[in-house]
Every structure is written in C-alpha cells, then in structure tokens.
Computed example of a mutant assay.
Amino acid sequence: MALRLLFKFFLSFAVALCYLHSTNAQGLKVGFYSKTCPDVEAIVQKTTASFISRAPSLSGPLLRMHFHDCFVRGCDGSVLLNSTKSNQAEKEAVPNQSLRGFQVIDAVKDAVEKECPGVVSCADIVALVARDVVSMVRGPHWKVPTGRRDGVVSRASEVNLPSPFLNITQLKASFSQKGLSVKDLVVLSGGHTIGIAHCPTFSNRIYNFTGKGDTDPTLDPNYITHLRIKCKQGDVTSFVQMDPGSSKIFDTDYYKLVSKRRGLFQSDAALLDDDETKVYIGLQINSAQPSFFNDFGESMVKMGNIGVLTGKAGEIRKKCAVIN
C-alpha cells in the first residue's frame, strides 16, 4: 500500500514537472537565446550604440516603437512590416507616421543574422533595443525576457493607440485593456522624458482648446507663450522637446514638468486628475531616491508581455520589414 502511494506521488510529481516545463517553454524568459545565440544581447547593444552615439535623439523614437508595437496585436514586430499592394501596414497609420529608427532595427537584425541566422525574432530585437537606448541616455537597465516570435499580419486599420488627447478615464481604460495597471500608466508616461513631439499633437491646447480660439486652462500660461513661439498656428512640421533642456537624458524631470502644469500633451496633464497617478508624481519629485528607474524597468517587462507569440506561433523573420 505504501509503495503504491509512493508511486502515485512520484507520478503526480513527474506530471507536474512536465506541465511546468511545457508552460515555461511557451513563455518568455531571460536568456532565451543562451544556447542558440549566446552573444545576441552584446550584438544588439554594440550595433545600437553605433547609432545612438551619433544621433542620441533616436532614443525616444526607438523606445516609442516598442510601445507602438505592443499596443497593436501584441509585441510581435508587426509595426516593422512594410505595406504591400494589397495591404496597408501599421506603419501607414497616422500615429505611426512619426516613428523613426527603423534603420537601426534593420542594422541590428542584419548583425544578428550574420551570427545566428534564423534564430532571433524582430520582436525581441525591438524589445532589446528599447532597453538599450534608455540605458544609453543615462536611464535604467533591466533584464529583458525574450522568446517572442514575429507576427505575419500588420494592418493600419487596427492601429488604435492611446492618443495624446485622452483624459485620465480613457487612459486608464486603454491601459487596462492591455493588462496594465494605473501605476504602469504613470510609469510608462515617464518615457516622455526623452524625445520630441510635433506641433499638431498639442496645438489645440495653445490655440483652440474648445473650438472657440481659447487655450487649455490646465496648461501653464507662460508655457503657452513659449510653445506659441515654437509652433505657429497651423504648423504641422515643427516640433518641440517633450522635456525641454533634458530631452536626451532619461531622468525624472518629466514629473517635475507635469507637476508645474507643463506636461505637453493632454494625456500628460491628465495624470494630475487621478489620486494614484498624482501621488506617484509627487513621490518621484520629492524623494531623495526616486523609484522611477526600477519601476520603469518593471513596467517595460510587463508591457513586453502583451499578446506575445511564442512556441511555434508566427515566424522568425529574415528581414524585419517583410514576412518570410
């Protein structure tokens, strides 16, 4: 009887181990390529650095590229695909037309393919590059779980990203739909500490907020004067730094701007309309040791898990802009 119970125990234990192994195999993990392409992260870092050292302004767009990828069809590299005669890809959607840095992703992919052909996905490269560009502009460095595979579908019509015009209720709903919390919302918004914004994304706030030629009352009037010098009415080509004077350095200055009513977007100003996000902003600007860097890495990992393709789903693209 005892032997029979012992056998059942070991059998159950073995089944549990097999199940655990299979579920881990289907998910992402740090060091996924440790045996198949052990130098992948070094290759990604070196190639990315060769661009950022010459053009640090690419750090913002490359970070944003990961966000834009993950919020549409999950983190599957679909934002990288080119349009075809029969399909308009995500790149063509208005929110993605300002994305830059595709040449960096292509160069990284080429370098990785030379070392490990057909092994590393474009989706993973986007995630690794996003981490590296943040680190290269004095931001945090976090461990990126890998193992994503590339999607084969990319449609402009499916692009529904959180816009810079959303209020706090809409922002919370948009992030919640992707499994992201209110804390993730305020933390990932902190990515606006690097990069630029084109005039049309905020011009309504400084010229015609309610359709009566007025300004947004939540925006600092002195900042409105400054922005009007940078962006004349109807200007669709000029741009401004999202974090003036610090747009090439990853730091907590973004939260200081928001607290002073100088957040550039309505979605930035909206962070003062919720108790949880407002408290977080206060903690980052008043603490001797802000938690933002650590929090940002955690939220990026969480975002990087949205709708991933793993196992045998999707493919490993040879070129990031076209399916195999």
Rank of each mutant, 00 (worst) to 15 (best):
L309V: 12
A42F: 14
L81C: 11
P145V: 04
G179A: 08
Y19L: 15
I105W: 01
V137M: 07
K29F: 15
V79Y: 03
G297T: 06
T47E: 14
G282S: 11
I323R: 14
V240Q: 04
K35D: 14
R64G: 09
R205Y: 14
M1I: 12
S176P: 00
L188P: 02
Q177G: 09
L5K: 12
K178H: 15
K183S: 14
K232P: 02
R131N: 13
G77N: 07
K212G: 06
C122G: 03
F209H: 08
V104Q: 02
D275F: 10
A270T: 14
L20N: 06
V301R: 15
V129G: 04
R54V: 06
G234F: 08
G147V: 09
T237F: 12
S121H: 08
S83V: 13
T47H: 07
S86G: 08
C320K: 03
L3A: 09
L283P: 00
Q26D: 08
L185S: 06
V137H: 05
P95F: 03
V187R: 09
Y254L: 06
A288K: 11
L63G: 13
L6V: 15
R138G: 01
N208W: 08
N286A: 14
F202G: 06
S181K: 07
K248V: 13
D110P: 00
R261M: 15
P56C: 08
V119K: 12
D76Y: 02
D124K: 11
S163T: 13
L5P: 00
D251N: 15
R54C: 05
G307W: 05
K109F: 01
C18F: 10
Q266D: 12
S50R: 15
P217T: 10
I249N: 11
T48F: 07
V152H: 01
G118E: 13
W142T: 03
G74R: 04
R148Q: 04
N167G: 12
L3K: 08
L166R: 10
R54S: 07
V134E: 04
S59D: 10
H68G: 07
T210V: 12
R73L: 04
A173C: 05
V112D: 01
Q233D: 09
Y223Q: 11
I285M: 05
H66Y: 10
Q266R: 07
D274H: 06
T237W: 06
A197F: 07
